[in-house]
Design a binder for these strands. Sequence first.
DNA 1: CACCTGTGTTTACGACGTAAATCGGCGGGC
DNA 2: GCCCGCCGATTTACGTCGTAAACACAGGTG
Lengths: 264, 264
Amino acid sequence: MTEPDPTADPDSPEGRGAVAGVLPAAPAGSGRAGLDRRRVLGAAIEFIDRNGLDALTMRRLGAHLGVEAMALYRYVPGREQLLDGVVESVIDELYGDPDVHMAASHGWQDYLQRLAHGVRRIALAHPEVFPLVATRPPAAPWVRPPLRSLRWVESFLVAMVDSGFTEEAAVAAYRAYSSFLLGHLLLEVSQKGVKISPEDHPDGVPDAAEDTDLGEYPTVVRLEPLLSLDESAAEFEEALENLLGRLELVRQEARAPRRGDARG
Amino acid sequence: MTEPDPTADPDSPEGRGAVAGVLPAAPAGSGRAGLDRRRVLGAAIEFIDRNGLDALTMRRLGAHLGVEAMALYRYVPGREQLLDGVVESVIDELYGDPDVHMAASHGWQDYLQRLAHGVRRIALAHPEVFPLVATRPPAAPWVRPPLRSLRWVESFLVAMVDSGFTEEAAVAAYRAYSSFLLGHLLLEVSQKGVKISPEDHPDGVPDAAEDTDLGEYPTVVRLEPLLSLDESAAEFEEALENLLGRLELVRQEARAPRRGDARG
DNA sequence: CACCTGTGTTTACGACGTAAATCGGCGGGC
DNA sequence: GCCCGCCGATTTACGTCGTAAACACAGGTG
């Protein structure tokens, strides 16, 4: 039922194979009892996905798990660290993604492509969580938000260096790549948020923006159909391809500083 | 005193002409009395810049203004709208920036350059506020976070169309440009946040990340000097230049779909 | 049986956002 | 001169939040 529509966005949750439970959680058969850290974090993610970040309070999350708020503190030091755990858990989904590889066994471009789409899939699956990924301070200056874990940074750098990038070029690529990912995905999920939010305030205030005199912005009005088109998937692909092309140039330049300089 | 260092980042607050009071505020001579919306928003920005977003509460902001919390409610409907106002005020600084023009009178590349640096200056001047710019939902899907106001979107689109972009290309450019800006600047300010935060927890927990066994990440360790180098300004410039180059190609293609096709 | 230990609950406190009532001073009608 | 209404700020109060601390209550171990 609801088999993947070939025209659909390949990274969107609907476009793939069902909801894919965020975390395995619980041994399996146990119906309700037995809280543990994974269950808490999983429930938090689910809760945020469903109700938004602001709605998450310790008390409500407890209730959602059929437990008092204070019970959560046995598995999580506090709310802030709970959110850190949420970010970590969400990013950890990358490890379980069979389409994302830790090594560039099919070339660095394949590696970057798969990684980018893997992160995008996560962003689209958890649009309410993703801004948290971008906003929470990373542990170190060089662990940039979208990648988040040292393991991925290591994997990234190894892939690039092994593929013929100089160390400087690999680091530059890391920066270009992560800022590309962050910018695109953050914009995409925030856009998605807006599309939904009209339902948020179901009545009353008629959205204020609706009736600002658009007369002063004729171009915006004229191009609104184009502007509100959602071509995120194509845009993403194109920008990614462009970035890869740019990186390939960097790589070649570095390998052959003058011309036809053989391998070092 | 402290004249601009030529090697400094031209967009950094220190690299320019002093702190430049966020808002003019108050008629001038009045010492303390006379709250008004501008003063409230200005104080909020200053407060966030100094103490971080989380530290901002109505009570504390009131105290900062020498007033009780409830007094603020005469000028602002509530905390959320206060934050909206903060975002709006910060973006409004663009209008007062003499280096940023609303029209592409010196060509679209000049226009985009100036706009980009203007936004970057704002981001660097208010690193604690900027994530708010990125995170708060825009009024409409096509008002993307970094630009924020319809007036800028209009200006942007007009500049591009007037410079020979097709409408489709102008919209595509708008998207590419805004995601570029958002990604780069968000990453840059979040990075800046990390560099400072060690002071945040002055004692106790020795930062956890410091002592994670880096042995498993030899490449990260080896490249750490490169990774922790702060070349934001150069990176920004390069990525911006690349984007402009890419847009120029799009523009030419659109003008001459086949070859040498004269102006429409 | 007493006793620890690990898990969830109860109670309690201070801080938050904010609704509602209140107050103080000041300018305009009488 | 006096009063009065209004405007801007304060006081009070309520419900909710995060979370510290004390407690309750199992099940296993002697």
